[in-house]
């Protein structure tokens, strides 16, 4: 998926905001279905079937969210059955299904987003807001794996001292607190050395440049503009069709405007795949010409 993931982080972030945003704020069943399929599809393209357990978890979440609405909300005219004197209505079921689809689709969009947004990319996005903030994030990102390693080291060393028992949960908890305390000292003391090193290299002496490895190229601008335009068209289209769940489920008839919206959203969802294909074709021609 390099044709998509290697694009400028700003474009990628805007794409995800557009794709997830339309899904999040709409209750149109057609849009939601397209969004759900697209989100799951993109994640599978990025990640493969690797984490089957998390997919099952998502399925569980979908079912739970779909069920919770009809169980707690009893409006709606079409009663399907009665449980404990409470009617379960078709309308509430449909709403639950739509909400569940919206939630799971959004989650999948965000999962793909997190997968693409590595530390550098995140830094690039936030560094635009504030270079100082970007620096804090960069330092924190560096410390996280370092602390994980140090945690294991401290744990082992303290164990070999043979001073503490490890027989029950209270001992274990105390042991963890001890390791955490030692870690804190170590982290704070060494942090001061980092601060010295920053001062030695002139941090805080004046305005800072924000240097990045990312550039804006034609493809990045294309992705940015397409994301915004397609999202705009789909919003405009979706606003042209009213969806009503209560008291009776009712979808106003399909107009040209709504259809245009659906098509635009479909294109938006497929955009990563389109960019990828474009890249593959370009590569194919290049190697063919050679």
């Amino acid at each position: 998926m390099q044709g998509f993931t290697e694009r400028n982080p700003i474009s990628v972030a805007v794409y995800f905001l557009a794709a997830a945003g339309v899904a999040m704020f709409s209750m149109d069943p057609v849009l939601l279905a397209v969004s759900l399929c697209g989100a799951v599809g993109l994640f599978l393209l990025l990640d493969g079937l690797g984490s089957l357990r998390s997919h099952l978890w998502m399925l569980g979440l979908f079912l739970l969210s779909a069920v919770i609405n009809p169980l707690t909300y009893h409006n709606g005219r079409t009663v399907l059955l009665v449980v404990n004197h409470n009617p379960i209505t078709l309308e509430a079921c449909l709403y639950g299904l739509a909400a569940a689809g919206m939630i799971v689709a959004t989650l999948y969009w965000f999962r793909s987003f997190s997968r693409i947004m590595t530390g550098d990319r995140l830094l690039y996005l936030l560094g635009g807001l504030s270079p100082g903030l970007a620096l804090v994030i960069s330092m924190a990102l560096r410390y996280v794996p370092l602390y994980g390693r140090q945690w294991r080291r401290v744990e082992e060393t303290q164990r070999t001292l043979g001073l503490y028992r490890e027989e029950n949960a209270v001992d274990t908890l105390r042991g963890k607190a001890r390791v955490f305390s030692a870690m804190t000292t170590w982290a704070l003391e060494n942090g001061v050395i980092t601060a010295d090193s920053m001062a030695a290299r002139g941090y805080g002496t004046g305005r800072r440049t924000h240097f990045t490895l990312f550039r804006f190229r034609a493809d990045d601008i294309l992705l940015l503009v397409l994301s915004l335009v397609l999202a705009g068209v789909s919003l405009w289209g979706a606003a042209g069709r009213t969806v009503q769940y209560y008291p009776v489920f009712c979808l106003s008839p399909l107009t040209g405007r709504a259809l245009a919206g659906y098509l635009a959203y479909g294109a938006l969802v497929l955009l990563p795949l389109i960019l990828q294909t474009k890249e593959a074709i370009a590569w194919h021609f290049w190697s063919w010409k050679k």
């Binding site: 994030i137 990102l141 560096r142 370092l146 602390y147 982290a187 942090g191 001061v192």
Partner: peptide, 8 residues
């Protein structure tokens, strides 16, 4: 730096 340390 201290803020970064605590965040980490």
């Amino acid at each position: 730096v201290l803020a970064a340390v605590i965040i980490a």
